[in-house]
Nucleic acid binder design. Sequence first.
DNA 1: CGAATGCTTGACTGCGGTCAAACGATGTGG
DNA 2: CCACATCGTTTGACCGCAGTCAAGCATTCG
Lengths: 255, 255
Amino acid sequence: MTTVSFQRTPREPFVFIDRVIRRYARLKTLSEYEIGLLRGLGSRRENHPAGTELCNDGGKPPHPRMIVDGWAGRIRILPDGRRQIFTFLLPGDGMGICTRPNPRALSATMALTPLQTVDAAALHDALLRRDPRCAGLLEAFAVIGGLDEAMLLDHVVRLGRQTAYERMAHLILDLRERLAVIGLVEDDTFILPLTQELLADALGLSVVHVNRTLQQMRRDELIETKQGRLKLLDPDALAVISDFRHRQPTAPPRA
Amino acid sequence: MTTVSFQRTPREPFVFIDRVIRRYARLKTLSEYEIGLLRGLGSRRENHPAGTELCNDGGKPPHPRMIVDGWAGRIRILPDGRRQIFTFLLPGDGMGICTRPNPRALSATMALTPLQTVDAAALHDALLRRDPRCAGLLEAFAVIGGLDEAMLLDHVVRLGRQTAYERMAHLILDLRERLAVIGLVEDDTFILPLTQELLADALGLSVVHVNRTLQQMRRDELIETKQGRLKLLDPDALAVISDFRHRQPTAPPRA
DNA sequence: CGAATGCTTGACTGCGGTCAAACGATGTGG
DNA sequence: CCACATCGTTTGACCGCAGTCAAGCATTCG
């Protein structure tokens, strides 16, 4: 394991790259070369205002990028305007990276908050070429692919078989787990930069009902929200309610 | 393209293997070696009665197998008995094949009808080893992985943002497309071996509501059902209703 | 300060769930 | 061959979760 430090404020390159490295190194031990490659991505940053469409549904896949700061979403919009969010993309998540040889993107991708990304072409190429020096990263991304699929399956269960209350509880735990991995959770509290409308579009609910569900959860003393921060007051209860199962390894692998 | 014939009745090895070959060859041109490998899977068949659990949710991934005849499903069951079907597995679909290095299965897999499978370890190994002689198959399975993800995303949209009527219409078109690829659709008609309860568990509905939705669709003269066969009377109307987009290439690739 | 955006609330509606019973097909054993 | 059990489908009555509509607040931001 490589030791890294986390002293800086958010939006600082060092911290970001360290978060990412920590995330991947948690999955697979990475070589110096691989860490160097990740670290090298820090240059060539790009800013996208909230609402920017980074990838067109059915269009060609996006240029490989990795999120540094902010949230994005994979989205589909129906002809009549109904909208479904497939997944939230968080700092450290990639898009257009190491995908199958898809001629076309399976969903649109949109910046949900002001977004900062880095060019990940170098990473993408190394993975595509299956560069043996990047064996660890290759495995890490394979694992991430599995986690993504697991997330999607959980999403299906939420939408197909859970009540609004259960869905919300599950999503909150989901986000906590993912944000915790990149060091964005402290004291069971994290910044939730989503409007209730975005939550609704993820959970297959109406805005009004999302609002009422959140209120009920507050009344039940399961969560607390103030100024964009969400605090889980009783994660265990939330987990029971929503049948949540942890996916991420909580400790780095020994291999 | 390899020419194959389809004269035999179902459940015959030749026909099955030819169907599968046709399916994969439709995605990528296959070498004689690859076709030989597929053809070789025909031995070592296994029968599973309906209801057999082929793979345990969260357990270790299933032994590589390919479905010859019958339908299976990827399923999750909640502690209180609610059930969600992620996808239906049809003849020619594999399980435990060419997956990422997952320590555990992401869902249970269950035979929904009496099922016949063949051992696909040889195929699985060749893909895992990235045997260069199987480059075409490797690509074909990568494409199939993409199609599977696309299906899953569509499923999310159905469950999250579509009405019962729309969901049903979409699923019917979905199944028609997949069954057509393996030659099981004739005159917009195919055998649908699912109970309304299984449809309900896939579509996130109750049995009763599935029943009423189907009846409405019959009254609207969009479909017709008799003795386990489903006929699409107006596929275009169904597509408009459900915003269905074709995923499978309708013609083999030129490459 | 006003405009825009997002949150909250209330009243009402309706899609789809639940419960219960009847009906039909299939299959099995006496 | 029939009696009976089982499984799946159908129907009706009723309910409730979540959607819709509409208005009023609260923040944030130019």
